[in-house]
């Protein structure tokens, strides 16, 4: 990789106008450890926190973060939360930490993070910061020896649609947006200062086996798989509910169209009769008639999100099953030896 050339502020300011796409999220080891500590200590409760860092060209650097206290639904507490945030930022700036918000992190349970709340939070952040990112950490998967960190952002086309609350089939088709296009996953890079790297080399244990290896070679993944399947089944139920909604919508739509046709024919017949009698014809459209009231089309957002979830679970199952196969065959080989 070519070393990034240092740029002066002027150069940076000059290039600022061209919005370059966000390609990589670069996280400091410190921020990763902080996120993991916070998420793990409170697991299975879901927690969030703020990410601090810098936005440099196509790279979003996350250099520090701080946790939010667990939220309670209360007006007073909300103000307190905002205060806490300000106070923390002020304090961190005093010890020269980058105090530029670049997004937030949150923990999740088995990857069930695709919710409307996440989208709303993202939109809120997006209003204030041009470029922001959400980091998702899954403490339940880390017991499998996997570093389950994900950096996500909403795709631009989805944000456009969301702002206009347009989730009808027609609009989606127009934009060519499918459920895969809601979230964009951004590759994560980890960086450490030379000092940290020196200390970690110094402190690395001499033993050739680490905790990580033990976790990975653990044979009992059944509870994890079971939970995963349970969630998957729940999601499938939700999805079929959504599908039913659509079926209901289409059925009522076609019934309405039939009714409209019937009404129009009746009206035309009436008009023909009136014409024959030499009277004024009645208008062919009558907005006050309940038959013409458009049936509201259900939003597809929910079904999109659920679909995302389902595919996420499928990916997880695939991954873990793959691991299981290797473990099983290894165990078999060991026994045969």
């Amino acid at each position: 990789m070519a070393a990034p050339t240092p740029r002066s502020f002027l150069q940076v300011a000059a290039t600022e106008e061209v919005a370059s796409p966000l390609l990589v999220v670069q996280i400091e080891g410190l921020a990763i450890l902080k996120i993991i500590k916070h998420c793990k200590e409170f697991s299975p409760a879901l927690v969030t926190g703020q990410l601090l860092g810098l936005d440099v060209g196509t790279v979003l650097e996350v250099t520090n973060c701080f946790p939010f206290p667990i939220r309670e639904e209360d007006e007073e507490n909300e103000a307190e939360g905002a205060n806490y945030q300000l106070e923390m930022m002020k304090c961190l700036r005093e010890v020269n930490v980058d105090n530029n918000t670049v997004g937030w992190y949150q923990s999740t349970l088995l990857g069930s993070f695709q919710t409307v709340e996440l989208i709303e939070t993202f939109m809120n952040y997006q209003e204030n910061i041009r470029r922001c990112v959400c980091i998702i950490y899954d403490p339940s998967r880390s017991s499998q020896g996997v570093l389950a960190l994900k950096a996500l952002k909403l795709s631009d086309s989805f944000m456009d649609l969301y702002r206009n609350h347009n989730f009808t089939g027609e609009k989606l088709r127009e934009k060519n947006l499918s459920w895969v296009d809601i979230f964009e996953e951004i590759p994560i890079k980890v960086s450490n200062s030379a000092l940290v790297s020196a200390f970690m080399t110094e402190l690395e244990a001499d033993t050739p086996v680490t905790q990580c290896d033990y976790d990975r070679l653990q044979l009992s993944t059944n509870p994890f798989m079971e939970r995963n399947m349970e969630f998957l089944i729940e999601c499938m139920d939700d999805l079929s509910m959504e599908q039913q909604k659509f079926q209901f919508y289409y059925r009522s739509l076609s019934r309405q169209q039939a009714q409209q046709q019937a009404w129009l024919q009746k009206r035309r017949a009436e008009n023909a009769a009136r014409k024959a009698a030499g009277e004024e014809p009645l208008p062919e459209e009558d907005p006050s008639n309940p038959v013409f009231k458009p049936v509201p089309e259900p939003s597809r957002l929910d079904s999109f999100l659920i679909t995302n979830q389902v595919s996420n679970y499928c990916n997880q199952i695939n991954g873990v099953a793959g691991q299981n196969f290797s473990r099983l065959y290894m165990m078999k080989a060991l026994h045969e030896n």
């Binding site: 450890l33 790297s197 680490t210």
Partner: peptide, 26 residues
């Protein structure tokens, strides 16, 4: 122990381009 969970490979070097996924770690 916590650092081991994350993996010294990630914390030791100054730049890691990609996080290992399930099978690579395995």
């Amino acid at each position: 122990v916590e650092a081991e969970r994350v993996g010294f490979d990630i914390l030791k070097t100054t730049v890691v381009d990609k996080l290992p996924n399930d099978l690579e770690g395995m």
